[in-house]
Computed example of a mutant assay.
Amino acid sequence: MNHDRFEEPVTVLVGMGLPVRLETVAEAYAMLQDWPAASRSSAHTIALNACKAGIAGEIDAETVRATLVAFARRHDILAPDMVFAGARSAGRARVHKQQWLKI
């Protein structure tokens, strides 16, 4: 079992609004390390420290994920999970088609 993997990935918008899916503590750490120094905040420091603790095995990946989500919300870069949203829409379309076929 991989203890540094998030149960659910976190998708953030980086650069010119490109979505990046973060699935592990190491990926979150790398993204936070690349964050511009001029834009760093206390939320960044907390998330970065959580990543370091997660890498060291001092806290679990879900605690790291929670701090990453808080950081992303604070900086307005948290993106909805488009794959999950698309799967939900496809499921609804199947239900509607099945209901229509019964008529």
Rank of each mutant, 00 (worst) to 15 (best):
R65A: 03
R21W: 00
L18N: 12
I55D: 06
A85Q: 07
P9W: 02
L32C: 02
V14L: 15
N49M: 09
V83R: 00
A37T: 11
A50L: 02
I46M: 07
E58W: 12
Y29T: 03
G17A: 07
E27W: 11
A72Q: 01
M16E: 12
E62A: 13
R5D: 13
R21I: 02
P19V: 00
A50N: 05
V95W: 13
V25I: 15
L13G: 06
D34N: 10
A85Y: 03
S39C: 08
L22E: 03
Q33F: 05
V95S: 13
V83P: 00
A53C: 11
H75P: 08
V10Y: 02
I59V: 14
L68W: 00
H44A: 06
L18V: 12
A79Y: 01
C51Q: 04
C51L: 08
G15I: 06
A61R: 14
R73N: 15
L48Q: 04
E58L: 14
Y29D: 05
S41T: 14
Q33E: 07
F84V: 00
S42A: 10
H96L: 12
A50Q: 03
A50G: 07
F71T: 01
G91H: 01
I55C: 07
R88E: 03
T63F: 07
I55T: 09
F84S: 00
H44Y: 05
M31T: 10
T11K: 00
I77F: 06
A30V: 14
A61C: 15
V10K: 01
I55Y: 04
R5E: 06
E23L: 09
V95N: 11
E8Q: 14
G91Y: 00
K52I: 08
V64C: 10
L78H: 13
S41Q: 11
M1Y: 15
H96C: 11
F6G: 00
V64S: 02
M16D: 14
Q99I: 15
H75I: 04
W35E: 05
D4K: 13
M16L: 07
A85W: 09
P19N: 11
I77P: 02
L18M: 12
R74T: 11
N2H: 13
R21L: 09
S41D: 06
A66L: 14
K52W: 09
A79L: 03
V20E: 03
H3G: 09
T45H: 06
R5C: 03
T11A: 02
M16S: 11
F6H: 03
R92C: 01
H75L: 08
A38F: 09
T24P: 10
A79W: 01
R5L: 13
E62H: 15
S89H: 04
D60A: 12
E58P: 04
A28Q: 05
P19C: 04
N49W: 04
L13M: 13
T63G: 08
A47I: 01
V20S: 04
G15M: 08
H3M: 10
T67R: 03
R73V: 09
A37W: 06
R5N: 10
R74N: 14
E23G: 07
A56H: 12
F84M: 01
G91F: 02
